[in-house]
Nucleic acid binder design. Structure first.
Lengths: 142, 142
DNA sequence: CCATAGACTAGAGCTATTCTAAACTGTTGA
DNA sequence: TCAACAGTTTAGAATAGCTCTAGTCTATGG
């Protein structure tokens, strides 16, 4: 695996976050399985299923701290639900409207050109591209 | 003005929606002022201010019906708040992170290329580009 | 091992949105 | 013209996702 930290402990240290049980456990769930897009409730469920007692509030706190530390990226697509993306490199997303799932599109496969200059006093922080996928209009099931 | 309907009544007819007081009034608020990005609560406030008694539930119902009829497009950027865009032509958005405002970017000014093909069984419904603008990192006010 | 700053938690609170069930109204047809 | 009904509207309750509060717990440094 090519993740940038040998383990959750190191990762928390680098982010200057105290390595508590909860944070260690959440970091493991998040980063030891390759790229993921998780919602808070989902991660909370996983933690409980893994016998890690952690409150939903802590899950939210931790996710936001991780975002602040650059370990996660928050992706908003649907009203009323945030996803947290463990892939923080430059990339975009497919969004499957039927299932609500996300899939990465590598940043170097899509090109966005001719973005107009930002208005004076502002600068571009990020360009998000979301490709919305719907179930194909019936193709005869072929 | 170059809007495609002479008036709200015609617009509702074309959408096969019964022209009720509320829908007529909301259609006027939405479409008689050029391109807009409104949130539901905002529109509700405008309606009340204009002495049009309408409930928030009806505002939501109406907005969704208009989206269904292709008169509006829903834009989701922040968790927990939808904007309704009266511009339904192909275009993208600047999002000002400090003020929460949106601004259109004409569809022909931005180009998105090399979008990978959608997986089998799916088709691309739309490609959304959101250019997030932050207040410029201090440029010395120049 | 103590002190303490930082972290965790249950539960209340909040915001945006949707639902429910009852009252109302535009339309149709006689 | 008007009855009747399907479609609309509404207030308020309900829900979902998230944040806050205030009290308790726990890493960490001495």
């Amino acid at each position: 695996m090519t993740r940038p930290f040998a383990n959750a402990l190191e990762l928390l240290r680098a982010a200057r976050l105290r390595p508590t049980r909860q944070r260690l456990a959440l970091a493991r769930l998040l980063f030891e399985k390759g790229d993921r897009h998780v919602a808070a409730e989902e991660l909370h469920g996983e933690a409980l299923a893994a016998q890690i007692p952690v409150s939903l509030a802590t899950v939210y706190n931790t996710l936001h701290q991780f975002v602040g530390a650059g370990l996660l990226r928050e992706v908003v697509i649907n009203s009323g639900r945030s996803y947290f993306d463990t892939n923080v490199s430059d990339h975009h997303h497919f969004f499957y409207e039927d299932s609500g799932k996300l899939r990465d599109i590598p940043g170097d496969s899509i090109a966005v050109s001719n973005v107009p200059p930002p208005p004076e006093g502002g600068s571009i922080r990020r360009v998000d591209v979301i490709v919305r996928i719907e179930k194909a209009a019936q193709k005869g099931r072929a």
